[in-house]
């Protein structure tokens, strides 16, 4: 936290030491920095003067340190890669093995490949960003509060099968609701195995067409029990006894017994806990 500074910093570095944070448009990563250096020096990417580029790269790292920028570990990894390439280029090439006419690969080859590959995706990213984006250049109806990312309903009204990410997001919301720690809880009273939880879910679903995801988790359930119930739900999905479906994006999540459940033979075959 930048405290109200008593003294006016005389230099940038002093300021940094006293907790001023300076936001600079830093490079996205080591590859971005390398590309910048290559462009700045106007050198051929296929014939990188490795000692020049390595020196400038290390100078930049030093500068970042002085400016107190967060120096990501990835930058250091690249520094060591550069130094390794440099030292390999200094070593004399070993005599080619007889009979094997294979050419020694330039030590820089892999780096060049990565740089070029990276440049392609960086450019493609810029091109994507320059498109006419929904909610930025073009608008559609309804545009919920300017953020067109939210509130989209797919054109086809059929139910949506959830992916794992959405399901675990919903579970995290549930978990957030219950208090984390309850003092003096007696352990061992409320143990529930996944098998028990599976049976419980199935018996509660029995006779119903569907259930709401949230109603699986009773309010007085302990955290452990909720987790076990959730694991049981995942297991049931995995063995395809249940289907988890949302009627609309961000809508309530419903649990359906899938068709396999009515097919009794098939179901008991698939159940590893039977």
């Amino acid at each position: 936290m930048p405290q109200a500074a008593e003294t006016i910093p005389t230099s940038l570095f002093e300021g940094a030491d006293q907790g001023y944070s300076i936001k600079l448009d830093a490079f996205e990563g080591p590859l971005d920095l390398l590309l910048h250096l290559i462009r700045k020096n106007e050198v051929d990417i296929y014939d990188i003067p490795i000692s020049l580029i390595t020196r400038q790269y290390l100078d930049y790292l030093k500068l970042m340190k002085e400016l107190n920028l967060d120096l990501a570990g990835d930058f250091l990894v690249m520094a060591s890669t550069l130094l390794q390439i440099k030292s390999r280029m200094l070593l004399p090439l070993p005599e080619p093995e007889e009979g094997e006419g294979e050419e020694q690969e330039d030590p820089r080859a892999e780096l060049v490949r990565r740089l070029i590959e990276y440049q392609r995706y960086r450019d493609a990213g810029l091109e994507l960003g320059a498109r006419e984006l929904l909610g930025r250049e073009v608008f559609a109806r309804p545009c919920a509060d300017g953020c067109c990312l939210e509130g989209f309903v797919p054109a086809d009204d059929g139910p949506i099968e959830l992916d794992l990410f959405e399901l675990s997001e919903a579970f995290n919301q549930l978990l957030a609701r219950i208090p984390t720690a309850r003092a003096h809880e007696v352990a061992g009273q409320d143990t529930l195995s996944i098998v028990d939880a599976i049976n419980e879910i199935l018996s509660r679903l029995d006779g119903h067409e569907s259930m709401e995801f949230e109603s699986l988790f009773l309010d007085d359930m302990s955290r452990e029990r909720m987790i076990v119930t959730f694991l049981a739900l995942l297991e049931l999905c995995r063995i395809k006894l249940l289907k988890v479906i949302q009627n609309s994006r961000y809508g309530a999540i419903h649990i359906f017994p899938s068709v396999a459940a009515t097919d009794n033979d098939g179901a008991s075959d698939a159940l590893p806990f039977a």
């Binding site: 990213g125 091109e127 960003g129 984006l133 930025r136 073009v138 608008f139 545009c143 300017g146 990312l149």
Partner: peptide, 26 residues
């Protein structure tokens, strides 16, 4: 119509950082 519509639409429009765009492209 962008300049006229963005005046009407509340909130900041979707912004994507370079790292987000790079990752999306990949």
């Amino acid at each position: 119509l962008m300049p006229y519509l963005s005046r009407m639409v509340k909130g900041r429009p979707a912004r994507f950082s370079q790292s987000a765009l790079e990752t999306l492209a990949i």
